[in-house]
């Protein structure tokens, strides 16, 4: 079992629930879409998984461990087993594409030679082999997106979380990115991909969790 939510709710103020009594279980190495309109709670649910937020109620279990009451060191250890692609990329502006992509490896105990080789290879894989030393401001939105993806997968995570990774690109590029995530999934990485582009989701035969107004309204184990 990869992840389970048990009656998870999150509210910032008493009358305003961002997530309301959400429960589901996801299996290891699966590919899951997280769908719903803007403001449905998709990003919040992802933030709960990478522990940037704590649930107001309910319990979350990740990689077989309950997340509540974890020490900060253990929290960091769990986060190292995840890769995250943010909607706004969150690249560090004064680091080059290569330095950004290599960051997660520098938090582990990889050798400098491995970091150099592996992160460069990965940037080449996402088609940025010639832009290694470019700063984020010198890259287009699509290129920044690919650096963010390279950074998310460079440390071979067990789980990849992607928050609206196709929000800033056209449908054709979005499909290519979805195929990229699919390839990663085939290599053994579980993927949870949040998107509001339902028409793209439908073209993939993958399970989807549909959120609306903070509630999980449907969980199709296998899309039609």
């Amino acid at each position: 079992m990869l992840l389970s939510f048990e009656n998870v709710s999150l509210h910032y103020s008493p009358g305003h629930k961002v997530l309301d009594d959400v429960s589901f279980t996801l299996e290891d190495a699966g590919f899951y879409f997280l769908t719903g309109p803007s403001g449905a709670g998709k990003s919040t649910l992802l933030r709960l998984i990478y522990q940037s937020e704590q649930p107001s109620k309910g319990k979350i279990r990740l990689f077989g461990e309950w997340l509540s009451g974890k020490s900060r060191a253990r929290q960091a250890d769990l986060r190292r087993r995840m890769g995250i692609v943010f909607q706004d990329f969150r690249l560090i502006p004064h680091l080059t594409a290569w330095e950004n992509a290599a960051l997660p490896l520098r938090l582990g105990d990889s050798s400098e030679a491995y970091i150099q080789r592996h992160s460069r290879e990965l940037l080449e894989w996402v088609g940025l082999g010639k832009r290694l030393d470019a700063y984020p401001t010198e890259l287009s939105g699509g290129e920044q997106q690919r650096v963010a993806i390279a950074r998310a997968v460079v440390a071979r995570p067990r789980l990849l979380l992607a928050d609206e990774p196709t929000g800033n690109v056209d449908d054709h590029t979005a499909l290519k990115l979805f195929h990229l995530f699919d390839e990663l999934n085939k290599l053994g990485t579980a993927v949870i991909l949040a998107t509001h582009q339902n028409h793209l989701v439908e073209s993939f035969c993958k399970p989807a969790l549909h959120l609306q107004g903070g509630r999980l309204v449907s969980f199709t184990p296998k899309a039609a």
Binding site: A73, Q75, A76, R79
Partner: peptide, 16 residues
């Protein structure tokens, strides 16, 4: 603040 938050999410612990 932004960079530190990102490092945390990437798995850096406070001591790193």
């Amino acid at each position: 603040h932004e960079t530190i938050s990102l490092l945390h999410v990437l798995g850096a612990d406070d001591h790193d």
